[in-house]
Design a protein around this nucleic acid. Structure first.
Lengths: 254, 254
DNA sequence: CGCCCGCTTGAGCTCGCTCAACAACAGTGG
DNA sequence: CCACTGTTGTTGAGCGAGCTCAAGCGGGCG
């Protein structure tokens, strides 16, 4: 049946690294290269010691799990390096990749006391971790921080709502084009080369993000390549050769 | 082609009532029946006069438009009676109903300076309107209000993310079952009868909300009815006859 | 009364899914 | 070093769920 999951998705699950990540003391926000991207920036520089006081640093190797869907939520995070995916799994194996998290992204905007997604490292990653209670206390003390979080939440709402249109009404080609442009737009201010996208995730991840199957994603890539809209040898590093054509696909008629 | 829009969707558009809604002075939060449902409640009762001072009251007849996609955003609202829909339209006519707004819902959680959706009244509605600037000032003065908004935004993020799974991976029957339960759950604390759902919107609205066509929605309704999971004579008032079966559909395997 | 709109049902088609095979590559152990 | 294995990406063949097109019915409104 359509939208039924592949069996092996449930049967095996990913080869799994130990959940317990490498934990270190925080080294201070002063030299943080991602501060300007993160919510931390809503706290003025002279108040960062309040953040530092409660922060810890986490290192996850690629493939490791930061949190499991349903587990109690004890910390919030800002990603300072690497890429994560937020995954939701139905009991029958159907899978959704709700989003990919990039450097500077904040993890923890939810009303739930439990994790709503399993969070897995796609590449080696580094995070700043803040205990939930400390974060709440910090918000109470620094309205600017709460205000920053609200702004962040609103942005994320906008982004998520845009995804609704993608999933509800776009064709596979349009979904993929939009995805490539979106990733490029996000990677550019993070030091990505103009006209290039890094896709360290697998094609299955992309498929489960776009509501398609791997095969359809793969075929769509081939079609974009045949039409000279993109180029790649390595399937994880894509040159956006004709971004205008991609844009025309992603926002048809606009 | 699949996911191509019906032509008449673009050609005509809905029969349109004047956009300028009926505006009245605000009558005070004191006797507000929906306060307990709304963000307004995050402001302690003794501070509501600050809200009242800037609030206006709006009445929209069914079919009227509160705001148009792309128009500058000048106010935020809380819905005190009736039902609205948030609509996004692609130039070629493909349509998404991002959500249905019920009594107590807040309108204005976005990072954008412009409306991201057209907002239309499904039934006659009443709203409290707050100028954007005043709201910002209020947030600065009352951290509790901002905190309430953040909580609200987080809840809405959770809900929207849940919709992603629906649109990406659920079958039509599962989508409809989930939708009915979700609407029932929302209507119950607002005085809805247990085991009943009011669906004042059209089947097209439901279809465009669930990423389906009208026909598929209609057939799914018929199937739920044949299986005795729901009952109805009036297509806008549904009895959830076997909610367990609906739940089994909406959360398969869980 | 007649028209239009909203809902439903039927018939047939198509796009994206399922199933299957294969190539390239990395890791592993003999 | 190479055979073996598992993972990832790609491609082909065929199918079926949901879409398109078409028709009919009932109710509200001018």
């Amino acid at each position: 049946m359509r939208t039924r999951a592949r069996l092996h998705a449930v049967a095996e699950g990913p080869r799994r690294l130990p959940d317990v990540p490498h934990r270190e003391p925080h080294t201070g926000c002063r030299g943080c290269l991602t501060r300007h991207l993160a919510v931390c920036a809503s706290l003025p520089a002279e108040d960062t010691h309040d953040l530092e006081a409660v922060a810890g640093r986490l290192r996850l190797p690629a493939g490791a799990t930061l949190a499991r869907e349903g587990a109690p939520r004890r910390e919030v995070y800002t990603l300072t390096a690497g890429m994560l995916r937020q995954v939701r799994l139905l009991p029958d194996g159907r899978r959704l990749v709700a989003g990919f998290l990039l450097t500077g992204d904040f993890i923890g905007l939810t009303g739930s006391a439990r994790h709503r997604h399993t969070i897995e490292a796609i590449t080696d990653t580094v995070l700043c971790a803040f205990p939930l209670q400390d974060m709440r206390a910090l918000c109470a003390r620094h309205p600017a921080l709460e205000s920053g979080l609200l702004g962040h939440a609103c942005e994320e709402l906008d982004a998520t709502r845009a995804n609704l249109m993608t999933l509800a009404r776009m064709t596979p080609l349009e979904r993929l084009a939009g995805f490539l442009l979106h990733m490029a737009d996000r990677q550019h201010p993070r030091g990505g080369a103009r006209g290039w996208v890094d896709l360290p995730m697998t094609r299955v991840d992309i498929a489960d993000h776009l509501g398609l199957t791997v095969e359809t994603v793969s075929r769509s890539f081939t079609r974009l390549r045949r039409d000279d809209a993109v180029r790649f040898d390595d399937p994880h590093r894509i040159a956006l050769h004709a971004p205008d054509r991609l844009r025309a696909l992603a926002a048809p008629g606009a």
